[in-house]
């Protein structure tokens, strides 16, 4: 098929777009040597990546756990109050991340209203530098990606399919789990991947709520690389960045393979 001029004009945009994304990544990867990477792998970056990936995975799972019922509920409500509430989902994305850290301290520190309530239930409760601080802060920042990705896939069509299933005797939860979730699984995976990736990249709020995480004193990877850059300069930070990028690319590739080809769901 012969393409028109517009096709080639837009192709230039595509090439420039990928250039802007790929060139800095390649520059970082080629800046470091294999021996440098091997040496840097003993700096603690691997443990930091492991912990960060694990925490981000937990946040992604919790986000999907909330996104599914949220989507079910909000798709069936048509009043303006809930439409306003729905528009707040993206609010955490707009707030500067250091401000998010401060918001979290103001809310969950044991001396603050919510924190003091938790302290009454758990007398040994502390917030900063804990798993809880990391999970709740990352959830605040990254859950919107799961919510919106899943919400888009849960169309009016899905509700029609659920109605059809219910007319054949399935209960609402059965219809949702057996009919809608299989339709949405690619979106669920995509939402998880986005939340997971967003969580991994977080630095600003972590510097405030969890500079290191107790009891192992391990940094999340963003904080780890930032500390390396401040303490040891560009080269070790670039080596750790390369290790993070390589592991990230492998993980995203696995997710894409799991996702498979897009298909007509309905």
């Amino acid at each position: 098929m012969k393409h028109d001029k517009l096709y080639f004009v837009f192709l230039i945009f595509v090439i420039v777009y990928f250039g802007i994304i790929i060139v800095p990544i390649l520059r970082t990867l080629f800046f470091t040597s294999i021996s440098g990477l091997m040496q840097d792998s003993k700096s603690g970056i691997i443990q930091s990546i492991e912990l960060t990936y694990f925490m981000a995975f937990i946040v992604a799972i919790i986000s999907v756990g909330f996104a599914l019922p949220y989507t079910y509920f909000i798709s069936r409500i048509h009043n303006s109050f809930f439409r306003f509430i729905d528009s707040l989902v993206e609010l955490p994305i707009m707030i500067p991340h250091t401000v998010v850290g401060i918001i979290m301290l103001l809310t969950f520190e044991p001396t603050m209203p919510i924190g003091s309530l938790i302290s009454k239930i758990y007398p040994d409760y502390r917030f900063d530098d804990t798993f809880f601080a990391v999970i709740i802060t990352l959830f605040f920042l990254a859950s919107a990606y799961s919510v919106r990705t899943i919400q888009v896939s849960y169309t009016k069509n899905a509700i029609e399919y659920e109605n059809m299933a219910r007319s054949f005797g399935y209960k609402p939860l059965e219809a949702f789990v057996l009919v809608s979730i299989p339709f949405m699984w690619r979106s669920i995976l995509r939402g998880m991947a986005l939340t997971w990736a967003r969580s991994i990249s977080e630095v600003g709020s972590m510097l405030i709520v969890a500079y290191y995480i107790l009891p192992s004193f391990t940094h999340l990877v963003g904080v780890f690389i930032y500390s390396q850059f401040i303490g040891n300069g560009l080269i070790p930070a670039a080596e750790s960045s390369s290790i993070l990028i390589i592991t990230g690319l492998i993980t995203l590739l696995i997710i894409k393979l799991l996702e498979g080809k897009d298909a007509a769901y309905y």
Binding site: E160, M164, S167, Y265
Partner: peptide, 20 residues
């Protein structure tokens, strides 16, 4: 009654066949 307890099936214009 809720949909599942009415004992009424309906063919919709959209058919709602499972493509996969």
């Amino acid at each position: 009654l809720p949909i599942e307890e009415r004992g009424v099936c309906m063919l919709s214009a959209a058919l709602n066949i499972f493509m996969d």
